[in-house]
Amino acid sequence: MPIYDQSYRPYRGIFSSHTTRWWTITRTGVLHFLKGRKFLVFLTLTFIPPIVQGFMIYGAHQFPEQKLVTVDAEFFRRMLEIQTVWFLVLGIYPGTGLISNDLKGNAIQLYLSKPLTRIDYVAGKFAILATFLLGVTFVPGILLFFLELGFSSDTKFIMSYWWLPLSFAGYALCAATAWGLIVLALSSMSKNSRYVGIMLISLSFFSSGMAQFMRGIFNRDGIIVISGTDSLKLLTYLFFGGVSEYGDHSFGAGVALILMSVASVFILRARVRAVEVVT
């Protein structure tokens, strides 16, 4: 029957389980952003550093006598540290608008009038950002790992660094979780995504500047963990070994990120509501 001949009729089909509703938000959100040409260009740009590193791996195997680069855990850690720079950009777009645009359009009430919980809503939105964050960390990391494995003529590399995929996964998950929650919490604090973007940039640069300033005053390197972006970089040492220029503060960075994530969850809990109760 053509659509124009159809009137309203009861729906007699099936409904999926409640537990997968968050995925609808994630899938729709990810596809929505991937439709944007500018965003696709940006995502392509994020792969330039790993591609360069891919050529370095190639060069290291083709011209071993030149000793261009040593492909070890530090090589991959550095790759992730570079990729973490994209977190700020992804936090600004698409991150800042994820909840603030819904607040602007009063859409949260619309979402929560469906059979969704607040956790489903936040999980769905979080997974949109997490997908892109994992896409710029875990995906290139694991691809480079397999590239190196493909070029290796013996088992030395795999015997020494078999744990690297786990480290990629561990770091990418922890970093994406912490950063995703921080960005979502900021996004829930204003109806204007531009303000959220400004807040995110200010917070990132201000906390980093403040951390360096306090480090200078108190002469304690550990203070650097108060900066979210610096903590993300320090966290790479927890998963890949080594010591940063500030000393071994990777565990402190992990604790700082956990605290920031917990604070973000509390903000989201307070801000994501179907009704705004003013007493």
Binding site: I14, F15, R21, T24, T28, A107, Q109, L110, K114
Partner: peptide, 26 residues
């Protein structure tokens, strides 16, 4: 709802289809 509400960036078909999917429809 009483208040003006919509999901930014979606047209009416996309919004209603999305609402259906959020209710669990294929």
């Amino acid at each position: 709802p009483e208040v003006d509400c919509h999901i930014p960036g979606l047209n009416a078909v996309e919004l209603c289809a999305y609402a259906g999917e959020l209710c669990g429809m294929p």
